[in-house]
Design a protein around this nucleic acid. Structure first.
Lengths: 201, 201
DNA sequence: TACTAACTGGTACTCAGTACCATAATGGAC
DNA sequence: GTCCATTATGGTACTGAGTACCAGTTAGTA
């Protein structure tokens, strides 16, 4: 499966990598907005038209990695053992989300550059959120399939996303701190309701 | 304060309204992408340049109302009585969010058109989320100022947003169902952790 | 009424994204 | 290896968003 790739496919993969490499190099130098698609195409030694054949728009190239990771983890979540118990689903979501954070920060330098681009360009941040929402939606779909009723099936992954966002905020720019911060956010979750007993003191 | 407005300001407000009205009329007819800024400017009887003087980009005009509501409610949240108790903050967030939903759906026809535009144009949906995140960030800031420690200060409004998104999903296109659905999502929240006793059976 | 400051809209530009086309390269059949 | 159908490539030309600039006009003020 590793070598089962035609010359055409290998060339395409190489072109794709050249585009991504060229793009990130230029983005690191000048930022997202000050790099044109023509610049990227030129450095990648492909035509401008070809760029748009590989990436629907200029933003997509920023997420070539993130998209792959999300697709990958969407499949992994679907492969998880089934359960219809809501608290149990939350525990699994917690583990899953923290593990995903670990993978996202596996290459710290790239993660920092990626996050820097998002921080400097609101429209990229938006796009990133859209991609995460796709993962969230896939998770909800899976939970529904497992018999989790609404609104829990929709809410649980949304809450997991809330914890991720919170962890990302508290961790700041430090990649190493992200998984722990996200886990802490999940921990905090229980204090929201548990502190409020059905029979107040 | 109502009539304390110069001729210049009145003219500007009128131009602004003309642009918004023209834009929504055209969007309702042809959708967001098939309407150009030149089309809007023409129908609003202003120059294309003037459009960009009032709205930073074509998307902004879609959110002229939403932005006003969010600014308004950001101020209202800041004016809420202070408390540093986390479960109490969640209860207040719940009431606040549901009330905000009621205002957002106060004009059902406009709400439906707005939601339809967001549903048909992912980039508009992204932009809407960005605006809500501003509200969420302002709330977190406020909670921090009230002495709520991290990560609760960041997490609580994020969870409220998760409930809003969930309610929006379960309510579907029905404006009247939104506040109730969002409230139900908050209710569901307590079941996430309360079902899991510290000492499993 | 005259002056100054601000608003207007037109022109011209850059760049993202799309449609189209001629050319070149690939992979398969023989 | 040769031929052919398929497919990728990159160039040209276009539309539309967004920006910079500028001359003309209009509101507020003395």
């Amino acid at each position: 499966m590793l070598t089962a790739m035609s010359l055409r496919q290998r060339k395409q993969q190489r072109a794709r990598e050249q585009i991504v490499d060229a793009a990130f190099a230029l983005f690191a130098e000048r930022g997202f907005t000050d790099v044109t698609v023509a610049d990227i195409a030129e450095r990648a030694e492909v035509g401008r038209t070809t760029f748009f054949r590989y990436f629907g728009d200029k933003q997509e190239v920023v997420f070539s990695d993130e998209q792959r990771i999300i697709d990958d983890w969407t499949a992994r979540y679907r492969a998880l053992p089934h359960t219809a118990d809501v608290p149990d689903a939350m525990v699994r979501l917690r583990e899953f989300t923290v593990a995903l954070c670990r993978e996202m920060t596996a290459d710290p330098a790239h993660y920092v550059l990626h996050e820097t681009l998002l921080a400097d360009n609101p429209e990229l941040h938006d796009r990133s959120m859209r991609k995460l929402q796709r993962l969230v939606a896939a998770m909800s779909e899976e939970l529904r399939g497992r018999g989790v009723p609404e609104p829990a099936a929709t809410l649980a992954p949304q809450v997991a996303l809330a914890c991720y966002r919170t962890g990302r905020h508290t961790a700041g720019v430090d990649p190493a701190a992200l998984p722990g911060a996200v886990d802490a956010a999940f921990e905090q979750l229980s204090e929201f309701t548990s502190g409020k007993a059905p029979f107040p003191p």
